[in-house]
Design a protein around this nucleic acid. Structure first.
Lengths: 228, 228
DNA sequence: AAGTTTGTATGATATTAGTCATTGTATAAG
DNA sequence: CTTATACAATGACTAATATCATACAAACTT
């Protein structure tokens, strides 16, 4: 098993700010987990006793409302540390994390994160900025959802997915979501999401091939997202 | 001018975690500002060079979307520290903070917050937990806005306002918002907010007297908020 | 391979919420 | 005190979105 000290993933996250010794201690106790597509990494209401560092694959972070309707609040990126909130506050997790494709993640016991967080100001500062940035994104999402139309948000999501996960040489987005997941992210009904995607296809903005989305007219999508 | 060391407000926030020396340094440089109702404490896009500790009064934290429509993302509570994100990251503020009534706030230059944040793990940890908690609330708001109806969210807001600001002996909520502000918080049009409030009054859930809201049937409001 | 389940697609319809227009009502300014 | 300005309320209408129903396709099961 690889050592954290050599792991390139930490370029994408705050573990980079740890000292050699701290990293080495983590490396000794960490555990690589493989989650199959659809597997729940940890669930709403449960306590997480550690933090996962996502090495490969994509997760959705979601919540259920009182009627069991799912809302996706975030998609993970490579290198994301997840579960730190529950691990640090010892409160039950308010979000559920699910693998959207096969996910490789290193499990780090909570103590090995909490200690550097208290003792290493560089790491603590980096983590603080990350949470601040997540909060900023969440606030933007609130404003986006409540002031923009579903059409705008759908265009926005497509551009976000391209931005975050990239496209292949066919301009096909490198992540496949079900229509239901798309709807849960945009905050609309599945049928509405399907209809809007069909509409985008008819208008030549995107092409659809099963779950694959091909971006055809990025400029027009940007205009749509801005409500023009 | 009072000294921070004696100030009772810090019981409500993380400044409590500072050492005597840190507090004393803040006390020497701090500045009490009075903001009149409606005054902008700091604006979206601007840099904040310090942090405000809210001693008295209530602020709204809001964002504008591309079309200039306002979304309130949070209401401040007594003791809240605001502006730390911009002060710490040196990025322009993504939110606008406006006084909803007369607000007394102590201005603390950014250095006096940044230093303890790096050197005092107790304070840094407390701040970290606060941002995590804000993030949790923001995620809940996302789920609430996109899965619940405007009626539900209105009932929810009324209960939240009671919970946060309390009621007098008439069961009148201790904070007065304009209909527009209520709408901007719930995420709906002003007319819709007015209509729903009128409906609640007709149904005997609340009473309205100008901007004052009197809670008459809290149980039913709770049911409504939960979508029952 | 046949059956079962799950996901996708689309039409018809209902509901919700937004917009526009108008009137009344406070509140502030001269 | 009067006028101007912002705020509140409500009706009429329109647009956006959700729900229900159904059909079909894809992906698993046995």
């Amino acid at each position: 098993m690889g050592r954290c000290e050599q792991c390139l993933i930490k370029q994408f996250n705050n573990l980079n700010a740890l000292s050699k010794e701290e990293l080495s201690r983590i490396s000794d106790s960490k555990d690589v987990h493989i989650f199959k597509k659809g597997e729940v990494i940890f669930d709403e209401g449960k306590f997480s006793s550690g933090v996962y560092c996502i090495k490969d694959g994509v997760c959705k972070l979601s919540q259920l409302n009182a009627n069991g309707k799912e809302q996706i609040v975030k998609f993970s990126k490579k290198g994301d540390l997840i579960g730190y909130h529950s691990a640090i506050t010892h409160e039950p997790s308010t979000i559920k994390v699910t693998a959207l494709n096969d996910v490789a993640a290193c499990y780090i016991p909570q103590d090995l994160i909490k200690k550097p967080l208290e003792e290493n100001p560089k790491f603590a500062g980096a983590m603080f900025k990350t949470v601040c940035s997540d909060l900023k994104e969440a606030n933007n999402a609130i404003t986006n959802i409540s002031t923009n139309t579903v059409h705008q948000r759908m265009a926005d999501l497509i551009l976000f997915l391209k931005e975050t996960y990239g496209v292949d040489n066919n301009n096909t987005i490198n992540i496949q979501l079900s229509r239901k997941e798309i709807a849960s992210s945009v905050g609309t009904a599945t049928e509405s999401a399907i209809r809007i995607l069909s509409g985008f296809k008819k208008d030549g903005l995107i092409d659809l091939d099963g779950k694959a989305i091909v971006i055809l007219d990025e400029e027009e999508l940007k205009h749509l997202a801005e409500g023009i």
